[in-house]
Design a protein around this nucleic acid. Structure first.
Lengths: 155, 155
DNA sequence: CCGCCAAACTGGAACGAGTCAAGTTTCGCG
DNA sequence: CGCGAAACTTGACTCGTTCCAGTTTGGCGG
C-alpha cells in the first residue's frame, strides 16, 4: 500500500501543502459524497484520532477554493461537500429525509441555461436542484400521512 | 383610501387571521421582493412602529406555508422572500453584490425538469439558480481585478 | 542536514440567523 | 359581548460557522 495516495498528489498539485487533515478530509468526502461538515469531522477523527473543528473548516475551505471540492448547500441544510467538480451535474434532494443524489442533466446541452432575459448579467453557472421524495420516504409517507406538503408544485 | 386592502383580503382568503404585522409584512415583501428577514423587519417597524423579531419570523412562516410567499435562500445568504408564487420563474444572483432578479424560464415547458435518472424519486419541483455578475459589478470588477472567480464554469 | 518562516493547526470565544418556551394580548365566531 | 384559539411579546438558547491569538509543522534555502 502506498502511503502516497492519489489524494496526496491531488492536494500537492493544487499548490497546497500535504497534511494529514487535508488528505483525510479529501478521502472522506470522496468516499462519502454529500456529507455535512460535522459528519466529515467525524470521519476525519476516526481516521486521524484527533482533529480540531477548525482544522476541518479550514481544510474544507482551502480544498473548495482550490477546486478539489464543491460545496453545496440545499435550503435548510448545513453545507455539504462532494468531489465531483467541473462536470455538469445537479442534485436531487428528498424533502423528507434530506438525502441527496447526483443527477446528470440529460437534455444535451445545458437546458434552461439561457434565461429568457439576462438583465445584463454575465451568467457563469446555472445550478439546478430537484426536490422530491426518495423511494424510502414515499413508502413511509404512503402508509402514514396522505399528503405532507402543500401546493406550490409548479416548476 | 380603503383600509381593507388587497393584502388583507389575501391573508383572510388564505384562512389566516388578519393582523397588522401580517398585512405589513405582506405589503413590504410585495413592494420589495427578495429582501431578507431583517430588512423586512425594518420595513414592518417603519410601518407599524413596533413589531417583535419573533412576530416577523412567525408571519413569514405562516404566509409561506399558506402559499402567499415563497422563500428563497441562495447559498451564503440569509432567507429571502417574494410574493410571486405558483408561476414558473427562477432567479439570477450576482456573485459580487448578491442582487437577485427574477427570470422566467423561456424554453416552453419546464426544461431541465426531467432529470436523466430520477433514482426512484418523485420530483415535484426543479429550482434553478443562475449565478453571474450584474452590470454594476461587471463595471466595478473590470476596472479593479481582471478575473475574480476561478474555473468551474460549466453548467 | 539544519533552521527558518509562512502556512497550517489548536482551543476557545464570538456571531448571525433562526428557533423554543412561557406568558399576554387580540381576533373573530357564536 | 364574551370566550377560546390563534397570534404576539420578551428573552433565552441552539446551531453552523467564523474570528482570534497563540503554537506547531512542512518543506525550501543555506
Amino acid at each position: 500500500m502506498s502511503t502516497t495516495t492519489a489524494y496526496e498528489r491531488q492536494v500537492r498539485e493544487a499548490g497546497l501543502r500535504v497534511t494529514r487533515p487535508r488528505v483525510a478530509v479529501l478521502a472522506a468526502v470522496h468516499e462519502h459524497p454529500h456529507l455535512d461538515t460535522e459528519e466529515i469531522l467525524g470521519l476525519a477523527r476516526a481516521d486521524l484520532g484527533a482533529v480540531s473543528h477548525q482544522a476541518v473548516y479550514d481544510v474544507l475551505r482551502a480544498l473548495t477554493t482550490a477546486g478539489l471540492l464543491r460545496r453545496i448547500e440545499p435550503e435548510g441544510s448545513p453545507a455539504r461537500y462532494e468531489t465531483r467538480v467541473g462536470d455538469n451535474h445537479h442534485h436531487l434532494v428528498c424533502r423528507s429525509c434530506g438525502t441527496i443524489v447526483d443527477v446528470d442533466c440529460t437534455v444535451g446541452a445545458a437546458p434552461c441555461l439561457t434565461a429568457s432575459d439576462d438583465h445584463g448579467f454575465v451568467i457563469d453557472e446555472a445550478e439546478v436542484v430537484f426536490w422530491g421524495l426518495c423511494p424510502t420516504c414515499q413508502a413511509a409517507h404512503a402508509s402514514t400521512t396522505s399528503r405532507p406538503h402543500g401546493g406550490n408544485t409548479r416548476v
